[in-house]
Amino acid sequence: MLRTDRRDGEVSGGRRMDGVRRGVGHDQVLDAFRLECGALSDAVAGLSDAEWNLPTRCIPWTVRDLLGHVCVVIDWLPAMLDAPAPREAEISAVEYYRPDDRFSPRTNGKRIALAQDRAARPATGAAFAEDFAATWRRVDGLCRAQPDGRTVRTRHGDAMLLSEFLLTRVVEVAVHGLDLADALGRDAWLTPAAGDAVTELLLGPEHAAAAGKLEWSRPHFLRKATGREPLNETEAAQIEQLGIRWLALG
């Protein structure tokens, strides 16, 4: 699961249009989703049985369980697209990560069980890698058939722009990709498109470029900004100066 790393309980709104922030563009987030999912597919293809069963920092999940979670959170989209579209978007991707019941211990328990159930379905690791590839490709195709400005309602009841909800899926694939790379002892495969999209979500479009002043790689910044690696006092001050939005992550 994504780790809780919220500091102040506040949500920073960023640029807004009709009351809802619009940051990363529709086409940009679609490309980030496709590229990052493709990189993850390549990374898990050919994993050994031992690698599938390695523990991750997302306790109690193994590598296989964590990929199950990524499958689950991507596979919410087909039903959302089949449902009636809300008349207008009400929240942004930043506001989606607000600290409420969606990140409670009860909901987190369901999240863990759903991931483990999904991971247990394919008979082999190879079949599971193919299942993941088929899942994200189906969702990618469905999303690309939607017009810019399409709205969806999440399972939590939030009315969002599809592009904003899909950005939260980019967060899931990118950040859990870092978790998987670390569990497997590999270099991060984070794509520039996804790294930039998540950084813009965390810092806002007006401050994202300033992240370069830290002279950190994108994977290093995202590990620090999402609680994967601890911040020392100096690093915490540097990130705060960038105007980071601390997200509630389950």
Rank of each mutant, 00 (worst) to 15 (best):
M1G: 07
R3W: 08
T4P: 11
R6Y: 06
G9F: 11
G13F: 06
R15W: 12
D18K: 14
D27A: 15
L40G: 04
A43F: 03
V44W: 03
A45M: 10
G46K: 01
L47H: 01
S48W: 02
W52V: 00
W52P: 00
N53C: 11
T56A: 01
P60H: 11
R64G: 01
L66A: 02
H69V: 02
C71A: 11
D75K: 05
W76D: 07
W76N: 06
L77A: 07
L77H: 10
A79K: 10
L81W: 00
P86V: 03
R87Q: 14
I91N: 01
A93M: 11
V94R: 14
R98Y: 07
R102S: 15
F103N: 12
P105V: 06
K110A: 10
I112G: 01
D117K: 13
R121H: 14
P122L: 03
A123Y: 01
G125V: 02
D131A: 14
F132D: 02
A134N: 12
R138N: 14
A145G: 14
Q146C: 10
Q146H: 00
D148T: 12
V152S: 02
V152E: 00
R153W: 02
T154M: 03
H156E: 15
G157W: 13
A159H: 08
E164M: 09
F165E: 01
F165G: 02
T168G: 12
R169S: 10
E172Y: 09
H176E: 01
G177E: 01
R186T: 05
A188P: 08
W189R: 15
G195C: 07
D196Y: 03
V198N: 09
L202Q: 04
L203W: 03
G204V: 11
H207G: 04
A208S: 13
A209K: 11
K213E: 15
L214G: 10
W216V: 03
W216H: 06
W216P: 03
A225C: 07
T226E: 02
T226F: 14
L231D: 10
L231K: 09
E235M: 10
Q238C: 04
E240N: 12
Q241I: 07
L242A: 08
R245G: 14
G250S: 13
G250F: 04
